[in-house]
Amino acid sequence: MATLDHYLILSAILFCIGIFGLLTRRNAIGVLMSIELMFNSANINFIAFSKFITPEALTGQIFAVFVITVAAAEAAVGLAIVVLMYRNFDIVNVDNINFMKW
């Protein structure tokens, strides 16, 4: 029987892989993919807590639905920005797009 700790540790590993991708990817689409991984690890946490702590109320599952909605909105806006970036600069590397830095 898998316990709550199993799920929490798996989600922690997935979250850390997501942060690693976020810090090291140069391609903006790769960064968005890493963010999706982190959203998924948060959802695993929500649903594991929902099963093990409040099995009747299902609060965690309801919050996971909200997280999925916000993740979909984030992916749509983020990819629109990536396409616009490519159209204007011919490049989607996040370390080359630094004209707003100074």
Partner: peptide, 23 residues
């Protein structure tokens, strides 16, 4: 495995079906 049948279906529909295709 966490008995979240609705969320499993939503995961396949939205993430596999929509977000990845968008990517």
């Amino acid at each position: 495995t966490l008995h979240a049948d609705f969320l499993a279906a939503v995961q396949v529909l939205i993430y596999v079906g929509a977000v990845t295709i968008l990517m």
